[in-house]
Simulated scan of single mutants.
Amino acid sequence: MNDLFAQLAKRLATCPDSIILESADEQLTTRELDSSIQSFADSLRAADIKRLSLLAGNSPAWVIADLACQLADICLVPLPHFFSDTQLSHCIENAGIDAVLTDDPIRLSKITPGHVVPFECGEKYHMMLSSLSSVPQQELPAGTRKITFTSGSTGAPRGVCLNFAQQLCVAHALAEAIGIANPRHLCLLPLSTLLENIGGVYVPLLTNGSVIIPPDADTGLGGSASLNIPIMLQALVRLQPTSIILLPQMLVGLVAAIEDGWTPPTSLKFVAVGGGKVSTALIYLAHNAGLPVYEGYGLSETASVTCLNRPGCNLPGSAGKPLAHVTVQIEDNEVIVSGNTFLGYLDDQDNWYPRSVATGDLGHFDEQGFLYISGRKKCTSSKHCGLSAT
Score class of each variant (00 low, 15 high):
residue 105 P to F: 04
residue 245 I to T: 12
residue 134 S to E: 08
residue 172 H to D: 11
residue 382 S to Q: 03
residue 52 L to N: 08
residue 58 N to D: 10
residue 24 A to S: 15
residue 123 E to G: 04
residue 248 P to W: 08
residue 319 A to P: 00
residue 338 S to L: 07
residue 345 Y to K: 02
residue 354 P to M: 07
residue 279 S to V: 01
residue 374 S to G: 01
residue 293 V to G: 09
residue 30 T to S: 14
residue 186 L to M: 08
residue 259 E to K: 15
residue 221 L to N: 09
residue 37 I to K: 08
residue 177 A to S: 15
residue 387 L to W: 08
residue 296 G to W: 09
residue 306 T to V: 15
residue 287 H to E: 15
residue 80 P to F: 11
residue 221 L to E: 02
residue 140 L to W: 03
residue 381 S to N: 13
residue 304 S to P: 06
residue 386 G to F: 13
residue 353 Y to P: 02
residue 35 S to K: 15
residue 178 I to L: 03
residue 343 L to N: 11
residue 162 L to D: 01
residue 232 M to H: 03
residue 302 T to Y: 00
residue 164 F to E: 05
residue 252 V to R: 15
residue 229 I to N: 02
residue 214 P to C: 05
residue 287 H to G: 02
residue 228 N to Q: 06
residue 344 G to I: 01
residue 329 Q to K: 14
residue 190 P to L: 07
residue 300 S to P: 01
residue 146 K to H: 06
residue 364 H to Q: 14
residue 69 C to V: 07
residue 149 F to L: 10
residue 199 G to M: 05
residue 228 N to F: 06
residue 355 R to N: 14
residue 171 A to F: 12
residue 200 G to M: 11
residue 297 Y to G: 02
residue 12 L to V: 09
residue 15 C to T: 12
residue 75 C to F: 02
residue 52 L to S: 01
residue 181 A to C: 10
residue 338 S to W: 07
residue 53 S to N: 03
residue 337 V to G: 00
residue 318 S to K: 13
residue 369 G to Q: 03
residue 160 V to C: 11
residue 132 L to N: 00
residue 45 R to D: 05
residue 105 P to Y: 07
residue 245 I to W: 05
residue 76 L to K: 07
residue 164 F to L: 09
residue 64 I to G: 01
residue 319 A to L: 06
residue 390 T to M: 11
residue 10 K to T: 08
residue 309 N to F: 06
residue 155 G to W: 13
residue 378 K to C: 12
residue 231 I to T: 15
residue 266 T to S: 14
residue 306 T to Y: 02
